[in-house]
Design a protein around this nucleic acid. Sequence first.
DNA 1: AATTATAACTTGCGATTTGCAATCTAATTA
DNA 2: TAATTAGATTGCAAATCGCAAGTTATAATT
Lengths: 132, 132
Amino acid sequence: MERRSDCPISFALDLFGDRWSLLVVRDLALKGKHSFSELAASDEGVATNVLSDRLARLEEAGVILKSRDPADGRRYVYRLSGAGKDLLPVLVELIVWSATHDDATAAPASFVRAAKRDREGLLRRLRASLDD
Amino acid sequence: MERRSDCPISFALDLFGDRWSLLVVRDLALKGKHSFSELAASDEGVATNVLSDRLARLEEAGVILKSRDPADGRRYVYRLSGAGKDLLPVLVELIVWSATHDDATAAPASFVRAAKRDREGLLRRLRASLDD
DNA sequence: AATTATAACTTGCGATTTGCAATCTAATTA
DNA sequence: TAATTAGATTGCAAATCGCAAGTTATAATT
């Protein structure tokens, strides 16, 4: 992907400005998914070629790490890198925005409340849950 | 656009999960642009048909407001709605992420510093600058 | 050992979306 | 009234999409 300008927002959109990349990050960050087949089974129904492409892009961009599953050689384990974990604040803000402006959203009320009242604490807890 | 699931992140991506929508929001929120031709002149070089489509989508979604320019009947004035202004935190987090993980980014250091040290204050100031 | 099943891709293909250039309409200016 | 400008539309090649089928490697079953 060619970088379109030196704008930081443009840079971020060059990496994950599409309808799928941040869903992969969401599943790794918030849903405890780690394998291709788990990621492929999302509610939104990613096509496997698209998932494969996004995983490769995100790995290339240093957002996710890919390693073999020591327990099953057919599997790979996908997890967030440091840069990937740093996307947690972005995810949280997207959740808050949708929870505020979309009536039909399924964001847990407790999550949204925590995001508004104790953002730092929530982020710390989310980060900690990824680090073990 | 058909909604893919009831997930709040998915909902947000259905609205602006592409390479251009948030650049339009950026230009309205942070660059003081208000007309089609100003938006079309962005560094990233949007095609006018794409810009036209994104403006229509964002207006339909209630993120931007479109009104005639009282001073020039050929022009329209585009500005952020309340929901659009609520995207400021998302933009800020994207800027912080890119500033942290992209060496070539052009994010003003003072902006990034403010975002990290006094997030609430920065958001308040940005919001205030949009409300007049 | 041979077969069957599973995980992660990859390929093929029609349909949609994109970017770019060339219009087009309406309003303004000369 | 002629030329210019703003915003949007159209045509078309190229890229990307979703879906289904195929491929390769590993694991489980018989």
